[in-house]
């Protein structure tokens, strides 16, 4: 069993761990770091439930090897309210009814967060394009899009 040592930042905290080379970042986050907010929906980059922000970019954690995160900055859904205060996105998701079963929600939030970080004022079309890789079977997306739009700089306070 091959392992490598990785030093990375997870939700603002620096850590060093030995990781198995065949382990995905998703499995590492869930089973080693025990951050179970990040979900597995398909394991092959088709559903977006496992989305985390890696070095500022939304990525599927099931499509990244844990070995690849040496030097990386990783943010999971647990980081959003990490300061003790809910992120605006979280508040708006609740306010707009953008959550139903909740399984896609963490990944959806992280994609939305990455979007607003890179584009604080996205159009509806840009929001749709950004979250097209996050499948939701419950909501029909309408309330999710409204929540993201309302969280953006142009959205109402």
């Amino acid at each position: 069993m091959n392992t490598v040592s990785v030093t990375f930042t997870i939700n603002g905290e620096k850590e060093t761990r030995q990781v198995r080379t065949d382990m995905t970042l998703l499995k590492f986050i869930r089973e080693t770091l025990l951050l179970t907010g990040t979900k597995e929906g398909c394991g092959e980059g088709e559903c977006g439930a496992c989305t985390v922000i890696m070095n500022g970019k939304a990525v599927h954690s099931c499509m990244v090897l844990a070995a690849e995160i040496d030097g990386a900055d990783i943010q999971t859904v647990e980081s959003l309210a990490g300061s003790g205060e809910l992120d605006k996105l979280q508040l708006k998701f609740m306010e707009h009814g953008a959550v139903q079963c909740g399984f896609c929600t963490p990944g959806m939030l992280m994609t939305a967060k990455a979007l607003l970080n890179s584009n604080p004022n996205p159009t509806k079309a840009q929001i749709k394009e950004a979250i097209a890789g996050n499948l939701c079977r419950c909501t029909g997306y309408k309330q999710i899009i409204a929540a993201i739009q309302d969280s953006s700089r142009g959205g109402r306070k």
Binding site: G45, V64, T111, E129, G133, N134
Partner: peptide
């Protein structure tokens, strides 16, 4: 190609 997450990688 793919989704935003895929294109980011």
């Amino acid at each position: 190609v793919g989704s935003w997450q895929i294109r980011n990688r």
